[in-house]
């Protein structure tokens, strides 16, 4: 089996099935996807062992690095969020300090660490650059949305502002090479334009399809029984505030 075919079977096909399986799991896919999706995910993650000679493996090596940085960052933030005043899923008191330690560890890794298992170092530098740049943009956008577009806010916007300012600080601490900065911005722009064009065309196709569908058959009017049942539900909700509906 040639190296290209091996890479196709052991990396690209499982990667495609992982994406498709994830969509199926989010929707109403069959139980088979509960087995196939994680299996394919493991196959993708094992690509540095199964197809070590393929160029495509560089992306998986990068993925391992992303998981090592992303896990403490995401879990740390989630612990901080869920140790607050949340109605469901509240974590115990230790959640906040542990979360803060996780976030601090991730920030330290972002500034100082370059994984030695990623063969092409420029890939890692570009990843960190895009991660911090995108975080900065998204946090700044959410700050503006929160401050200027929400009228009666009872929540705080300073964490968003802190996120928008901390990302460039981490970026300057790590250092950005001139060879990496402008190409990364061009890549984000190129990818956004291409993906936006594809989404626009896809929306047009679906819109044309939906527009040509026949009108649904008219439903019969509600019977007296239906009306009485609806009135009873409305009355119950008005009196009890919907507490019994759950």
């Amino acid at each position: 089996m040639g190296p290209t075919l091996t890479a196709a079977l052991l990396l690209w096909l499982p990667a495609l099935l992982t994406v498709f399986g994830t969509f199926n799991l989010l929707g109403r896919g069959g139980p088979i996807w509960k087995v196939v999706t994680p299996l394919c995910g493991v196959l993708v993650l094992l690509a540095p062992l199964t197809v070590p000679d393929s160029n495509s493996t560089q992306a998986v090596e990068l993925l391992w690095g992303v998981l090592l940085i992303g896990a403490p960052l995401v879990f740390g933030l989630a612990l901080v969020v869920f140790s607050g005043d949340v109605p469901v899923g509240q974590v115990p008191v230790w959640g906040r300090p542990v979360g803060l330690v996780g976030i601090a560890a991730a920030c330290w890794l972002i500034v100082t660490w370059t994984p030695n298992f990623v063969a092409d170092v420029t890939l890692w530098d570009r990843f960190v650059l895009v991660l911090l740049g995108a975080c900065s943009s998204l946090c700044a956008s959410m700050y503006v949305l929160h401050r200027l577009f929400i009228q009666r806010r009872r929540s705080r916007s300073w964490p968003m502002l802190a996120g928008a300012l901390l990302a460039p600080v981490l970026l300057s601490l790590r250092g950005v090479g001139g060879e990496a900065g402008p190409p990364a911005v061009a890549e984000i722009a190129g990818l956004s334009v291409g993906a936006g064009f594809a989404l626009l065309l896809s929306v047009l196709v679906i819109w044309f399809y939906e527009r040509n569908l026949p009108e649904p058959e008219a439903l019969p009017p509600p019977s007296q029984d239906d009306l009485e049942r609806a009135a009873a539900i409305v009355a119950r909700r008005t009196q009890k505030g919907g507490e019994l509906d759950g």
């Binding site: 990068l62 992303v66 992303g70 933030l77 969020v81 607050g84 895009v130 946090c139 964490p159 968003m160």
Partner: peptide, 23 residues
């Protein structure tokens, strides 16, 4: 891949940062 992975991680991280202020 770095651009895709960077954007994919930045989205949940930014939402969680926003959620810190909200919750």
């Amino acid at each position: 891949a770095p651009v895709g992975l960077g954007l994919a991680l930045a989205a949940p991280v930014s939402l969680l940062i926003a959620a810190v202020g909200l919750r």
